[in-house]
Design a protein around this nucleic acid. Structure first.
Length: 464
RNA sequence: GGCGCCAUAGCCAAGUGGUAAGGCAGGGGUCUGCAAAACCCUUAUUCCCCGGUUCGAAUCCGGGUGGCGCCUCCA
């Protein structure tokens, strides 16, 4: 079965065909590094991680680029408020961003270009746009003339007549020929302080949209396969990227556009005034694991609004525990007498998993298949009708799934104190001193260590 | 005013014409010193409402109701 994506550009599901056979070039809109990213931001990055991992699962050679927006109104404003340099300010949030990616087990992209490292590329592009008549200058500011680009609005499905009646068409602080034209380059102004570049365009800084056009084309070429982001980036950001890039090159920019839906919190849009605004760090502080957040963000289809709640995190933790207990239990199983059914279970799971994900990354369907697989193999294990060879096949299968899911917990070392407590409990149990044994077990539970007595002896695991 | 999305069990969430996946939570059982884990049974005669098409609709069409998003720098 073939991989299909719902393409925002056409509005329909399309079979995915890369430009170069076997290779995928992917651009994923990244963060503006002016604060810690919130869980809504990470919903998009987790979705992109799923896309990335599944493309690799399918055998594609992948080049993923994610930009870091380290120059815009907010980074300037907030760095000045703190009285530190723009670089020092954004570096802090770049570092935090990468830490958060690790917490969520998001695989690294091949490139993370920062906007401030690509000013010359942007300047070149703006010059080309000016030469071709798509850009004009007013007092050192450069704007894109959208009337010149016939296809403007094709991604967001907006027509310019409809836009005239728009609810939020406010007059800009700069003088533009049309209110809809957007800034490519902003002339320096006192508020910018020491943030500016002296270029052929004059003293100033780039607009927001131009960085993604310039950097994506630098690393992926003028025409590449997939571009993703949140639905809120569809307009104006991605629409403007298309306008800039295609005006510049004269040909198609991107084949497939994928947009992930919003995350809402307890049924409402996440906002500071409602008190339901969470960064990843806020969630971790409440004692939830990064893995639980990953599960919750991943488990809902990307084009569906995701309802984030603390109750949902509890459910996610429990589901992860089932998943990881499965792997542990299976790994420790010695093997029994095969009844011949394992091969069918495994084949069905592999086929179902791919069929679901091939269908526009239907992760919920895929997880359904994974948990069916877990139950089926657990049953064979419990009944002793799984051979050691079949056990190994089943382990390979879940490991294969995990290259996409990233749910497996790594084993960690126990500290000496905990190890001693476990030994004491085992001793007490041997002496039938169950009161002491249970007391120690309760203490460990309070420390987040769960004990399980198995035929092979006591086993521990950390609460997810 | 324009464009678009959504409504499935207590919660989360697949399924888009063939008779309701999966996870969590709940109930009963097996196992266990007790637990935990695991397994078995169980929890929506029904998919927001009203019409229509069809042998057959959660799925298609029409009309409501409710919620949400975008319409110039928010993933």
């Amino acid at each position: 079965m073939a991989l299909k994506f719902k393409n925002s550009l056409t509005g329909v599901k399309e079979e995915f065909t890369p430009i170069q056979q076997g290779k995928v070039r992917l651009y994923t809109c990244g963060p503006t590094v002016y604060n810690f990213a919130h869980i809504g931001n990470f919903r998009a990055y987790v979705f992109e991680d799923l896309l990335r991992r599944y493309l690799k699962y399918k055998g594609y050679e992948l080049t993923q680029v994610m930009n870091l927006t380290d120059i815009d109104d907010k980074t300037i404003r907030d760095s000045q408020a703190e009285g530190i340099s723009l670089d020092a300010f954004t570096q802090r949030y770049k570092d935090a961003f990468f830490e958060d990616l690790d917490t969520l087990r998001i695989e690294r992209a091949e490139e993370y270009p920062a906007a401030t490292d690509h000013i010359p590329e942007m300047v070149e592009m703006i010059k080309t746009l000016k030469e071709k008549g798509f850009a004009y200058e007013v007092d050192g500011n450069y704007y894109y003339r959208i009337d010149k680009f016939d296809d403007y609005g094709k991604l967001a499905n907006l027509d310019r007549d409809g836009m005239k009646a728009g609810a939020r068409v406010a007059s800009d602080e700069y003088e533009k020929d049309s209110v809809s034209d957007f800034a490519l380059w902003k002339a320096w102004d006192e508020k910018d302080g020491d943030v500016y570049w002296e270029t052929e365009l004059g003293k100033g800084r780039p607009g927001w949209h131009i960085e993604c056009s310039a950097m994506s084309m630098k690393y992926l070429g003028e025409h590449f396969d997939i571009h993703t982001g949140g639905v809120d980036n569809m307009f104006p950001h991605h629409e403007n990227e298309i306008a800039q890039s295609e005006a510049c090159t004269g040909h198609k920019f991107v084949n497939y556009w994928l947009h992930c839906e919003y995350l809402i919190v307890e049924g409402r849009k996440m906002s500071k005034s409602l008190g339901n605004f969470y960064t990843l760090r806020d969630i971790l502080d409440k004692g939830y694991s990064g893995l639980a957040v990953r599960y919750l963000l991943l488990a809902t289809h990307y084009r569906q609004q995701l309802n984030f709640s603390l109750k949902g995190l509890d459910a996610a933790s429990a589901a992860l525990e089932r998943y990881n207990d499965f792997v542990t239990n299976l790994g420790e199983f010695e093997g029994g007498e095969s009844d011949g059914s394992a091969a069918g279970v495994i084949d069905k799971a592999l086929a179902g998993f791919e069929e679901a994900l091939d269908d526009d990354l239907n992760i919920s369907g895929a997880l359904g298949v994974v948990f069916d697989f877990i139950r089926d193999i657990n049953r064979l294990r419990t009944e002793g009708t799984l051979s050691s060879a079949e056990r190994d096949k089943a382990l390979e299968t879940i490991e294969k799934f995990d290259t996409v899911l990233g749910f497996a917990q790594e084993q960690e070392q126990l500290d000496d104190k905990v190890e001693q407590m476990i030994a004491q409990r085992t001793e007490a149990k041997k002496n039938k001193d169950f009161a002491t044994a249970d007391r120690i077990r309760d203490e460990l539970t309070a420390m987040g260590i769960i004990l399980e007595d198995t035929p092979q002896g006591v086993r521990w695991k950390r609460k997810v």
